[in-house]
């Protein structure tokens, strides 16, 4: 049986190539049918609120995020505390993600075999 992988995305969409390179790991793993979960933490939560990529002169990250389910990556989570600290509303997140409190995040880490944080 395949090992489960938790990917933790901690960087803002305007921070450079890191958010995209984290998603590339998710998409590559999804193509191999690996069990992958994705957690948005810290400034990574801003990725869920479709920033103005054109103004940042960056390729749009949203297309990659929307592609996740097509690659079998459907377990998407966000840290409730990180949203609250930044005044963000989880119901407006795109794509839809499951909101987790601190205890649930601990459980999420514990339930996966592998963790990669970028």
């Amino acid at each position: 049986m395949s090992k489960s992988l938790l990917l933790v995305s901690r960087h803002a969409p305007c921070s450079g190539s890191t958010p995209r390179e984290l998603l590339d790991i998710a998409l590559a793993g999804g193509a191999f049918d690996l069990p992958i979960s994705l957690l948005f933490l810290d400034d990574g939560v801003f990725q869920l609120f479709t920033p103005n990529f054109a103004a940042l002169e960056q390729k749009n990250l949203s297309a990659n995020l929307q592609a996740l389910p097509m690659f079998g990556v459907e377990q998407l989570y966000v840290a409730e505390r990180c949203l609250r600290d930044r005044g963000l509303d989880s119901t407006k997140a795109q794509p839809a993600v499951q909101c987790l409190d601190d205890a649930a995040i601990s459980a999420l880490y514990a339930s996966h075999d592998l963790v990669i944080t970028l």
Binding site: L5, D24, A28, F32, L114, I116, T117
Partner: peptide
């Protein structure tokens, strides 16, 4: 090579250790 090599290594090794 591609990112598949990272997944392959992570799946087959006893431990994946990341440095960043």
């Amino acid at each position: 090579s591609g990112l598949g090599q990272l997944h392959d290594a992570a799946q087959s090794a006893d431990r994946l250790i990341c440095f960043g």
